[in-house]
């Protein structure tokens, strides 16, 4: 069997759910036929001190989690992953990140959909809460929201931007229609969250009054 140095690992993604902690993930390279270990090292802007990843476990395999004490914002982190086996080590390309630019919140929570009525016409009232980790109350993170709604069995979603509101009304419903509703959020300067799980609702039958 031919053994070789480990393949070059690649830092694939770093994300912060609430601008207070962050996690980085890497993709291992080939292992060169030998047992291979991985380590993440980082250096902070204007400092020559090199630190090792504080927590390889919390965020699962091939990841490094930085808790609140390890996380500074408005500071550049220069991050490198090193793969090592008996023959030596291979370094990933370094990646520079600032936590303020990698914020991707968790989806909104407690999404509730109810059928309301206005002068005999039904409409859907959708309400939700911000992801509990995101501190919107103090203004540390500002979230905007987007909803999508569609009839069950159809492909076309109807999209609605809700701004910073946490409640939205949807009109022009199909009599007796079964609807799916999802909500997602985005920080003022960051990435959209995943969609919340779908909420199902049935609109009662009603007759058009021409």
């Amino acid at each position: 069997t031919r053994y070789s140095l480990p393949g070059k690992p690649a830092l694939t993604r770093c994300r912060s759910p609430e601008k207070e902690t962050f996690t980085c993930w890497w993709e291992p390279g080939s292992d060169g036929g030998l047992p291979t270990t991985y380590a993440l090292y980082y250096r902070k802007e204007n400092s020559e001190t090199v630190y090792e990843c504080p927590d390889y476990h919390t965020a699962g395999k091939n990841s490094c989690f930085f808790n609140k004490n390890d996380t500074s914002i408005w500071v550049n982190y220069n991050i490198t992953v090193v793969a090592s086996n008996a023959l030596g080590s291979t370094f990933s390309d370094p990646v520079d990140i600032d936590v303020v630019y990698i914020v991707k919140p968790n989806p909104p929570e407690k999404v509730a959909v109810t059928v309301m009525e206005d002068k005999g016409w039904p409409f859907l009232r959708v309400s939700w809460e911000p992801p509990h980790k995101a501190d919107t109350r103090s203004g540390w993170i500002t979230l905007i929201y987007e909803l999508r709604v569609k009839l069950e069995g159809e492909n076309e979603w109807e999209m609605h931007l809700a701004g910073q509101q946490k409640m939205f009304n949807i009109f022009s419903l199909r009599s007796g229609g079964r609807y799916l509703v999802q909500v997602r959020c985005k920080p003022d300067h960051g990435f959209w969250s995943e969609w919340s799980s779908a909420s199902h609702i049935k609109v009662p039958d009603y007759f058009h009054r021409e």
């Binding site: 408005w74 103090s138 203004g139 540390w140 500002t142 300067h189």
Partner: peptide, 14 residues
């Protein structure tokens, strides 16, 4: 500008 924006948004919520 991100710092300015963050400080003003904290002030706004207060």
């Amino acid at each position: 500008s991100h710092k300015i924006d963050s400080f003003l948004k904290v002030l706004r919520c207060r």
